[in-house]
Amino acid sequence: MNGLRRYIARRILEAIPLIFAIIVFNFVIFHIAPGDPTSYMMAGSGVAGIDPVVIEAMKKRWGLDKPLLEQLVVYLSGVIRGDLGYSFFRNKPVSEVILERVPATLLLILPSACASIVVGTLIGAYLAKRPGSKLDSTVSTFSSILYSVPVFWLGLILLIIFAFGLKLFPSSGMVSPIGEYAGSVTDMLQHLFLPSLTLFLTDVPIFIRTARASVIEIMREDFITTFKAMGLKENAVLYKHALRNALLPTVTIAGMLLGFLLTGAVLVETVFGWPGLGRTTYEAIYMRDYPLIMGIFVFSSIVFISITLVVDIVYAFLDPRVKYR
């Protein structure tokens, strides 16, 4: 147990320099990008209706007239205290804009990610029982197709069919602006359905592939023969021993999968006008709201690093061999 605790502490300590590196990287980017760094930090400050006092305060706040190194220190300490800059287009601190939008994104990502992890892993494990069978090749072909279809295009096609054609689901937003059910839970679920389905369909092939490949690999290990010889039923061997071991590679590449989920979320939110962080990113690009773009980059990187950390820790719990590494 002590070993595990030490391992977790070490992983956390290793994550801190990574987060620093991300923040410094972001700072470097807007200093080497063509154009004046100040203009990136202050993008949108020309928008009518912004109090000149705010603009001055922000310039001071970021020490934009100070030498570079001092600016970096100011920037770093700001970010660490949760100050990601100011969005003049929205007239709000960036961190506030981001935090407002996170719940909607979670509502979209979590159910579909959980569903695709569970369903994909089970399908993948099942296919691994008979590699090369008819069912296996059919499902593999389908998953290659889904994997190759651009996420947002799939979303658009679903829109064409179910929203514009069959008129079964609303085409955009999170709730209906008017109508009897506007704002009710049913209304929200209806809005959630198509974007969630899109994400599910694009994510599920990755989990099918990963689970299938690792279960096939594990089913060839010697210990699987031991358990078969012990008189366990095929399914018991598969689900009690093979799957547990095969989950380890799934967890290991979770970092990469997470990137996939996020990319999907940004695009799907854009297609369906889902008011989450992805849609906000799209709007920020559209308006060239640089403070917001940078803020989202730093925020999502920190989230990403934290989740990777959590995944590593979960891994250590799942695999007794890891702890003292």
């Binding site: 990008a33 990136y40 996020l262 640089y290 990403f304």
Partner: peptide, 16 residues
Amino acid sequence: LVIPTIFLLILIIAMF
């Protein structure tokens, strides 16, 4: 690998 690629691409392409 630990940077979310999509946001990295957005940041760099939006600025450069």
